[in-house]
Write a protein that binds this DNA or RNA. Structure first.
Lengths: 138, 138
DNA sequence: TCTACAACCTCTAGTCGCTAGAGCTTCAAG
DNA sequence: CTTGAAGCTCTAGCGACTAGAGGTTGTAGA
């Protein structure tokens, strides 16, 4: 049996975050001591590991709730889990595209200025004030 | 003189968002009517345009406050504006790297499963439960 | 000039995923 | 038996909005 602190050390998830996960219904403790402290078993440790990993991959709490729910009903089709993962992938790709466009634009803005003039004629400020300067969409 | 709704239409910034920008000290209205409604002049319109553009590029409210402050003191060096832009660029590049790693991992996870089995043997769930499956860092 | 109603106003609370702090209690080692 | 680290609950804060309640103003048509 693990205390919340031991669980935290083993998974790298902070103690208040573990309590937060419990609060939102993502992770229940195995039980409590007489003095009301949380105790976890191996199952709890594994569940928190999955949560941690999924969060690292950018899955929302809602998506992880659905995944865990699925895991707890092994008879149900795996299709739903795949859908959730693919949705997450689509999402990541959208963000990637957007960030690439932003990078291009920021390079143009940050490089256009040598930082030596005064801000009246600053290229950074001029670029931000005038969208016309931009190449392409963002 | 523009009402808040006209400003909203011209810049694409929602009305409550404009009020929010005022609340956090980013955009002041030119004045009010007798009946306490906001009225903006051309300067306000341009300022909101800059804010919109900078937000689209991912600058924080705090960074934009600094940029506007700089714009209003044209005698000060442009270096600070360039620093802010470069900081933002660094930030975007960090996010890009991370998202690329996530994409790789998600492709592996989402493609490893045909979605036809049941969730007991689901590759998506197995991958999330076991970090060992992952190639490389993320 | 009157009326109707869209657009405006302020205020509070909710979103997401935590994080920080106050003030208290419990556990475990010496 | 004492000490102090670690646990507990509860509330509030972060950033950048968004939503809704409930009331007021501006303006166009009759």
């Amino acid at each position: 049996m693990f205390s919340i602190g031991q669980l935290s050390k083993q998974t790298g998830v902070k103690v208040p975050t573990i309590r937060y996960y419990e609060q939102v219904g993502l992770l229940m403790s195995a039980g409590r001591t007489e003095g009301n402290q949380r105790r976890y078993d191996k199952g709890g440790l594994e569940r928190l590991g999955l949560i941690r990993h999924a969060r690292d991959l950018g899955f929302s709490i809602e998506a992880i709730t659905a995944l865990i729910d699925l895991q707890e009903h092994p008879d149900r089709s795996c299709q739903e889990a795949t859908l959730i993962a693919q949705h997450q992938l689509t999402d990541v790709r959208k963000k990637l595209l957007r960030l690439k466009a932003l990078e291009t634009e920021l390079v143009r803005i940050a490089d256009g200025c040598d930082g030596e003039g005064n801000s009246e004629e600053c290229y950074v400020l001029a670029s931000l004030a005038n969208h016309q300067h931009c190449r392409g969409e963002h």
